[in-house]
Amino acid sequence: MSESAFEPKIVGFLCNWCSYRAADLAGTARMKYEPNIRIIRVMCSGRVDPTFVLKALSLGADGVMLAGCHPGECHYIEQNYKTIRRFKMLKHTLRALGIEEERVRLQWASAGEGALLASAINEMVDQVRELGPLYWPGNWADNEGSQDAIQALPREHAEAMEVPA
């Protein structure tokens, strides 16, 4: 497969109140954008556990977009601030895992910003297309037992964290 034929798969987590409505608006206004994003609706960007992002990447997504209301505009008052904090932590983790920063993106989009969301999606798709496929770890399937190893990680982590009595 030539590099140019690579079409990235992006999973998007969009909050119900602003960014999902921005996606609605982009649709209503017939703004064309790249078809590579597949959107999951959550009530708030605060619902997005950073492990969702890791899970998506591990399943074979090449990038993940988190979108929410602008800071200060959250429909749950302040929950997107928690998203900001978690996103920072997530980036840190991804760096440690050797995953390029451009593969995850936190995008604010109010219900009126369909154009902004559409252009952010295009920009992200371009960036990830440039980076190429993420061979991690969803694409290790030929490497026998990798799934088991991944599943075992949280357990090992928990054991490591245990304080001896």
Binding site: M1, P133, Y135, A141
Partner: peptide
């Protein structure tokens, strides 16, 4: 998981 590389659309 299916095998890499990922298929194009």
């Amino acid at each position: 998981t299916v095998k890499s590389p990922q298929p194009a659309l």
